Amino acid sequence: MGALARWNTLVQAEELAQALGRDDLVVVDARASLADPDSARRAWELGHLPGARFAHLEEDLSDHALVGGRHPWPDAEAFTAKLGRWGISPRHQVVAYDAGNGGLAAARFWFLLRALGHRDVAVLDGGLARWTALGLPTTTDVPTAAAADYPGTFDQERLLDADEVAARLDDDGLLLDARAPERFRGDVEPLDARAGHVPGAVNRPFSENLDDDGRFKPPARLREEFEQLLAGRHPGEAIAMCGSGVTACHQILAMEHAGLHGAKLYPGSWSGWIEDPSRPVATGDEPVEP
């Protein structure tokens, strides 16, 4: 038998289906609903990929005992303890998926592991929607796993707070806001207390990372689009944000898939920025400097 496939950004449903049963593979169902958070767990109970553990966006991929926007970045010790309970260790190939939102919560899970230094983690391209459209198997069985040990801390170089974001903008950093254009402009704000964006930010909605079929665009196309925004900057000078640090991870995943490595995350994002009313807010469209 040849070397086992390792996936670091995306994996296609056909490839994953062939790999089910590998003893080094752990699949995680990270589907989420902002409107009804508990509906995601109920949906997982009704059917999920064979062996898939369930990771709750609010309870597992965020820590609401902390501050920092609507989805505070979790404590490393608490998060790695959950990885261990799911049977995930640093040796595992991990694949995360969600239902029909373009891979948003799965990308959050992906970047949580990446920030721990876990390389072999990927998102199922097209998610559960494409998996079921291909007629691939699902189950209602609740998986069991032997507990594992996951030592690790987050790479703080890739996680920036509001002051670090402001400083890097002053130093020609690129802040990419993944929200929809109408939220970026401040025309509407359905979730947060104030509308608008961080002055100097550039809007790239996460939906621009996807093709019409809900899968990610090809790497070469993504690279061309992001390099146009980078305008000669190193990818590590890019900072991703959104409303609460979830869809921003989709931006980093797209960049990594395009071979553009090292982008940072502002976990608090817009909801964290406006926690301090003294921070400046911009509205409307700002010109993008080439």
Rank of each mutant, 00 (worst) to 15 (best):
D120F: 04
A65V: 04
S89Q: 12
P235R: 10
F216V: 02
T80W: 08
S207Q: 11
D36M: 02
N8W: 07
A254Q: 09
L57Y: 01
I274A: 04
R204V: 03
S33V: 00
H56A: 01
L253Y: 08
A115G: 05
L174G: 05
A78V: 14
H64Y: 04
H197V: 03
F216E: 08
G127E: 02
T80Q: 08
L66D: 06
W131G: 01
A167M: 02
D171H: 14
R168M: 13
E58M: 02
L20S: 15
M255I: 12
D38K: 11
D177K: 11
D285A: 05
P277C: 08
G100S: 07
D285N: 10
A146P: 09
L20E: 09
A99L: 00
A40W: 00
D155R: 12
E256Y: 04
R119S: 08
G102Y: 02
R194N: 10
A76H: 03
E15I: 08
R85D: 15
P72F: 09
A106F: 01
V246L: 09
T132C: 00
H64K: 12
P151E: 05
A220C: 07
V11A: 07
L49N: 02
A282K: 14
P218G: 10
D36T: 12
L229M: 11
T138E: 06
W73G: 06
R185E: 15
L253K: 10
V26N: 01
F184P: 04
P181N: 11
A258W: 10
D24L: 05
L61T: 01
G126K: 00
R114F: 09
P37L: 01
D120Y: 04
V95E: 03
L134R: 14
V165I: 13
M1L: 08
G103K: 00
V123D: 01
D213R: 01
R183N: 07
A166L: 12
S271A: 01
F206W: 15
D149F: 13
L112Y: 10
K217A: 13
P72Q: 10
G68R: 10
R221D: 15
G135C: 12
R279W: 14
H250D: 02
V27K: 09
G243F: 06
E14A: 14
E15A: 14
H234R: 15
G117Y: 03
E225F: 05
A96L: 08
A263P: 13
P287L: 12
A55D: 08
W110M: 09
M1Q: 05
A76R: 04
Y97F: 10
S278Y: 07
G236S: 15
A13D: 10
H250F: 11
P199W: 04
G243W: 08
L210N: 13
A65N: 10
F184M: 08
R91Q: 15
L104Q: 09
A40M: 02
D29N: 02
P280M: 05
R6N: 07
P235F: 13
E58G: 03
E286C: 02
S269H: 06
R91D: 15
A19T: 11
Q228H: 14
E208W: 14
R179F: 07
Q228I: 05
D75M: 07
